[in-house]
Each structure stands twice: as structure tokens, then as C-alpha cells.
Design a protein around this nucleic acid. Structure first.
Lengths: 229, 229
DNA sequence: CGTTGCATTGAGGGCCTTCAATAAAAGTGG
DNA sequence: CCACTTTTATTGAAGGCCCTCAATGCAACG
């Protein structure tokens, strides 16, 4: 999703204390942390999540290969949420000091990071609309469409199938629903032949139909490709 | 909200085909537009809103003095939503070409705009949590807390009172609720002496209490003040 | 092959919606 | 400044979408 050239990404990556391998279900950052590294997902999935006082959880983003986890730590004092892996992952740890150095030297890098941030904003606006104004059924369908489009854009969709390493509880927590209800919704998506979802893999036989049903418009994910590198 | 120095803002402002005065309830940008200006709110309120195929509306942001309306047009092809004034407003129209020129010359400006974007993201994450995991009552309370904090940060709160130029229908459309229900929620907020809301003005007699009730934590609105100018 | 986590199912309840009507406020033209 | 219109706020009643509670089935894993 980040609109970085491969070259730029290589630069960033090479800066890190080489990429770390992280197992599944590990917190990379916790609420309250004041991190000194940026994190870039190289392989695997992660999520951004918020825990409320009553214990409930809201997932506010899924982080796929190529996504930065936490650019906002450049300006915000502390993490007001946590980030955790969903699968075994490869994560680049990039010292913030290095980023500040580099962005001072390479204006194009700043711009590229800014643009990655702007694309992320588009995703977040779509989530707000999804949570605010769609039924559980369309809401779930819309999420599947988004993940399909994003996975496709990083080359991880084959034959309309891709890895979807989420439990129903996690899907529920990203859609503002309960696991019980998302279960019934998923069954309906299955019974209407909109998805085949089993063992962490999903197939969307007719993405155009699912896009139409959920009101998904993929254009917000596609930045102008004004490459800088 | 934008983390720009006054000097930087002045520069931007001076660039515009001088500030335009726009009356209330006017679209500044419409879904589908491919704008050639950036818009910066100088005075008044605006909103970002999305219309769904079934006609329902979701408001995804309120834009207060100092906020950019549409930085994302730097990377996205077309507006996937609309922006409209809520009050008579003064808006700076800044040609995108100028911005591209300037950011090429002034790296600090790029960084400042990026940081403004990162702060906006924090607001959006808070909305996602709000929509996904809070009851209507806390959701409304949380919105009031956010607007109080943001208005305060631009010096528009006096004696715990500020202009809140929203109809109940607009509040409903930003919280994913119906006007009927938000009306009952507001009455409860009133009856518990949490707000006094009348004629486009609101007073929050005990902001600490409202923050606590809604789970509002203002820290995400306060960037590190690393000024560049 | 038991343990553990996840998926599934059923029943009942509540938060919020929908529909519909009325009141109150704000805007408009004479 | 007053009649008129339009928008906004308020109230009531009924219903539905989704939640809560609780149990059972199922699959992964050591």
C-alpha cells in the first residue's frame, strides 16, 4: 500500500537492525509505549487494535506486507493502541533517529512516506463508512473486498484465493460485531456463494458481485503513481 | 490540528487566490471531482461526508479552522466523498501545482503537511473505535469531548462553551445513528448535566467527567511540537 | 487422545431503528 | 414585523438487527 519505490523500501530496510522474525500473536508495540523504532511489515499479517476499559477490543487496521505499522509515532508522544502479529511475520525495525536523519536528507522519502500515510487515510475513511452505515452482512462483505484488493496489489492473490489468517473473533472486532453474529453472517456469505472461507484461506469466486453487493469501490486504494526514486 | 507554524501557514495562505468566503451548506468538493486546489479552513466549520447508494450519509470528519480539507488529493485520482461547509466559512484555495512546487523546494513544508496528516489519522482511529465499540450514549459523549478538545486547541472555547453548528441529524450521521435516537441520547446527556446544548452552542460544565464517561483521552490530538519553521 | 481454542447453534433480550405524528424554531417574503 | 413555509427537534409505538448467555461440535496441537 505504501507508495514507495522498491529502491526506497530497500534503503529503509537496509537501515534496520536487519529484519526480525516474529512469531504469530506477538505484540510488536503496546498501548503506552514510546517506541524508538518504526516497523515495516515485510511478510505476514499484523493488526492495530485498541482495548477499551470494559475489555472489549476494536481492531482499526490490518497491516499487510509493505505496510508501515506506526508512522504516527513520528508525531505522537505515546502509542494509544497496540500492534500485534496475526501470523509469523518478518518485520523491519527502523530506528526513528535514522528516519529523521534520512528524511532531512531525502525530501522524496518524506514525500513518499506522506503519501503512504494519505493512502492509509483512505482506508480508514472507508472503515468509518463501513462501521457507521452498513449492515453486518454488507460490512463483512466490504472487508473481504478490501482485503482482496490489497492482497492482490501486493501479488498475494492466486486464482481469486488468498490467505486470510483471521479468526471470526478478529473479524468481529474489526467490524464492531460479536463473534456469534459474524458467524451467522459468514454462513450467509457462504450460502450465497459469495465466499469460500476455510482454514485461513478465502476464495472469492465473483469479486465483481461482492464489490457490488458491499458497495466497494477499489479506487481509493490506487494512488497516482508518481514515483520519486 | 495541522502542526504547521504560523509562518508556514501564512506562506500557504498567501499563495491562494486569496481566501474565499463561502456560505453555509455549500459543497466545496463533490464525490467524483478531480480538484486542482487544496482547501484550508480559515474560519468556520466544514465536514467530510459520504453518500451511500441507498441514500444514507456518513460524515467521516469535521473540519475546523486550521484543518486541511483534502490533502489526499495529492495522491488519489478522484474524490470518493464530498466536503461541504456547515457554517459560513473562509476557505483558502491553494493550487495543487503550487503545493507541488513548494514542497519540492521546502522539505520542512512536506514534513509539516505529513505530520498534519498523521494527526488526522489519530482522529480517524478514534472514530473507528467509537463507531465499533461504544454505545450511542458514550459515542455521543466522546464526539463532544473531541470537538471540545479541538476547539480549545484553536482558541475557540470560552468558559467551557463553544459553537457547535451541527443539527442532530448531522450528529447522527457522524455517529452511525438515527436522528430519533441521537435526540434521546442528547436528552439524556442534558438530564445528567453533562452538556448544555442549545442554538448551535454547547457548554460542557465538567469536561473531566465527560472525558471519563466516554473514555476520551486527549493525548492523540497533541503532537510533539517539533516546529520546523 | 486429552486439551485447548475456535466454530456453530439456540433461545431470549435489548439497543437502536422505522414509521408516524406533533411541536418548536428558523428562515422567507410581503 | 407578521403570516407562511421549511427545517429541526421531540415524542410514541412497534419491530428488527444484533447482542448476551449458554451449550455443543469440531479441529488443531502436543
Amino acid at each position: 500500500m505504501a507508495d514507495l519505490s522498491d529502491k526506497q523500501r530497500d534503503v529503509l530496510q537496509s537501515l534496520g537492525d536487519f529484519a526480525q522474525t516474529v512469531s504469530a500473536d506477538e505484540d510488536i508495540l503496546r498501548q503506552g509505549d514510546r517506541p524508538d523504532h518504526l516497523h515495516l511489515v515485510l511478510e505476514g499479517w499484523a493488526m492495530r487494535y485498541h482495548i477499551l476499559p470494559n475489555g472489549s477490543r476494536q481492531i482499526s487496521a490490518y497491516l499487510l506486507p509493505g505496510d508501515f505499522c506506526d508512522l504516527h509515532v513520528m508525531v505522537l508522544q505515546r502509542m494509544d493502541h497496540s500492534i500485534a502479529t496475526l501470523t509469523p511475520a518478518k518485520i523491519a525495525y527502523i530506528p526513528i533517529g535514522k528516519i529523521k536523519e534520512l528524511t532531512a536528507q531525502l525530501p522524496e522519502l518524506t514525500q513518499a512516506l506522506w503519501w503512504a500515510t494519505l493512502v492509509d487515510e483512505g482506508v480508514m475513511r472507508a472503515w468509518i463508512v463501513n462501521l457507521g452505515r452498513r449492515t453486518a452482512f454488507k460490512r463483512a462483505a466490504h472487508l473481504m473486498c478490501e482485503l482482496y484488493a490489497r492482497m492482490k496489489s501486493v501479488g498475494l492473490v492466486t486464482n481469486e484465493e488468498f490467505a486470510l489468517p483471521l479468526t471470526q473473533a478478529e473479524i468481529a472486532d474489526s467490524l464492531g460485531l460479536t463473534p456469534v453474529h459474524i458467524n451467522r453472517v459468514i454462513q450467509r456469505l457462504r450460502s450465497e456463494n459469495l465466499i469460500v472461507f476455510d482454514r485461513q484461506h478465502i476464495t472469492i469466486p465473483n469479486i465483481a458481485r461482492l464489490n457490488a453487493i458491499s458497495g466497494f469501490d477499489p479506487s481509493y486504494l490506487h494512488p497516482e503513481h508518481v514515483r520519486l526514486g
